[in-house]
Design a protein around this nucleic acid. Structure first.
Lengths: 139, 139
DNA sequence: TTTTCTATCTTAACGTATTAAATTTATGAG
DNA sequence: CTCATAAATTTAATACGTTAAGATAGAAAA
């Protein structure tokens, strides 16, 4: 990771521990949608003493800083999205894979019902079977 | 609950036990978005022996039959929606309340990325603070 | 009514997320 | 560079939501 990146993370008020740097590195240019366990497993080899608490703590900080988004595609566990540009998602009900979907052309109008709410964002989630699971289910 | 409703539920192949009838009755004309616990608490007074397993089992059946939808607004617990007409949702990050939003005028085009997927539905979820939590946060 | 079959209940286990306390570490001031 | 401090990590325990298995009860069918 280069100097500029390091300065950037520091400028956010983040203490740069080896574990955090490893998590940041893992997330950089990562277009998957890892669960806490995915992150934990990925870093375990390099940091055998690493705990889930560290993963959750770090991810909470990163979400607050806007460096990562939290997905609500599953109702049993958190999924994180390191790609923060506006986009949407598909969720495969069978294999739990998430597929990125570009922004939807027709821009959504803010519904009348929400005129007194403070809106921060919206997500569109498509549900179904990914190509692999689709063909498996037809056998 | 009237005869017609009973016949309808039976026609779906549902065995009509008192607990199920109570859950169905609770859901009828219910425009909230209960969690399993909400349902459990609502029925506990009438059915002190009722267990969570029964709630989950029944809801699973109802979701399969299409009488209830499962929402993915929270990543730590399930929320159910007994109102199955097409519509979308707002989720308050603070009090976890869900607000219904009518269908969005511009119909969403199926994204190119998903052309090989088998799509079953999509959800649009707005996130932010509901009017109450918004005013509280400004004090 | 008797039999069969399914739903329910209880209990326990599971996966995931969160918390508290004690220890260790990064950082900035001196 | 050393030290003091605040912050992060570790460990362990705990909370929460969900699911599974076996025993029981109850509804439907004959």
């Amino acid at each position: 990771m280069n100097e500029e990146k390091l300065r950037f993370y520091k400028s956010l008020g983040l203490k740069l521990t080896p574990q955090r740097l490893a998590i940041l590195e893992y997330l950089e240019n990562n277009r998957s949608h890892p669960s806490a366990e995915d992150i934990y497993n990925a870093l375990k080899p390099r940091f055998p003493s690493m705990s889930f608490a560290t993963v959750y703590n770090t991810m909470e900080v990163l979400v607050k800083k806007g460096l990562v988004k939290e997905l609500s595609v599953e109702s049993t566990r958190k999924r994180f999205d390191p790609f923060t540009h506006p986009h949407h998602h598909f969720f495969c009900k069978s294999c739990k894979k998430v597929i990125d979907v570009g922004t939807i052309k027709n821009n959504i109008k803010i519904p009348e019902e929400l005129k007194d709410c403070e809106l921060s964002e919206y997500q569109i989630i498509f549900f179904g079977l990914c190509p692999e699971c689709k063909s498996k289910s037809k056998q």
